[in-house]
């Protein structure tokens, strides 16, 4: 039996050698050198490790790499397209939606999933989608405005 497992990360097929019980987060950061996905608590309580697994936000700190085998994983590094920032990343810069920035990777991932399924979310819908993310610096309102801005920009681009 061959060791490790295969998965698709940011559109690229990869084989990883880690034992199957290794958290996906450790594989992303240490084996694949994708360090934008963060360790915050290790217990699904803060959201800094959020990634998309087949398009659905999930906690990379508790998911084992085995559970992601054969699936498509998107990290913060996979949001930008051909070197151009994702509209959400641009909107976060435009709104200066950050203080320390440690929570931003995870928030951007959840926000990207939200805009994928709901092009024009209300404030309440944004809050609901992001409520599993903790931010200690207190830039929640800027984040909400940035998501609204990105939503408008993406609607404008699609029109």
């Amino acid at each position: 039996m061959s060791k490790g497992c295969d998965l698709v990360v940011n559109g690229r097929s990869v084989h990883v050698d880690a034992d199957e019980a290794t958290p996906l987060l450790a594989v992303l950061r240490d084996e694949l050198n994708l360090r934008g996905t963060r360790f915050g608590c290790g217990t699904e309580q803060c959201g800094t490790c959020m990634v998309l697994i087949d398009g659905v936000p999930d906690f990379a700190c508790t998911r084992t790499v085995e559970s992601a085998a054969g699936k498509s994983v998107t990290t913060i590094e996979g949001l930008a397209c051909n070197g151009a920032l994702h509209p959400l990343q641009q909107a976060f810069l435009d709104e200066q939606a950050g203080q320390c920035g440690y929570c931003l990777s995870g928030i951007l991932i959840s926000a990207a999933a939200l805009l994928e399924r709901n092009k024009r979310p209300s404030r309440a819908e944004i809050v609901e989608a992001l409520d599993k993310h903790l931010c200690r610096c207190g830039m929640h309102n800027r984040v909400i405005r940035a998501v609204q801005r990105a939503s408008a920009a993406m609607a404008g681009a699609a029109a």
Binding site: R35, G36, R38, I76, A80, F92, G98, Y102, S105, L108
Partner: peptide
Amino acid sequence: LPAKVAGAAFIH
């Protein structure tokens, strides 16, 4: 901020 919305930016 640009590094912080794009990925690796911290001591970690």
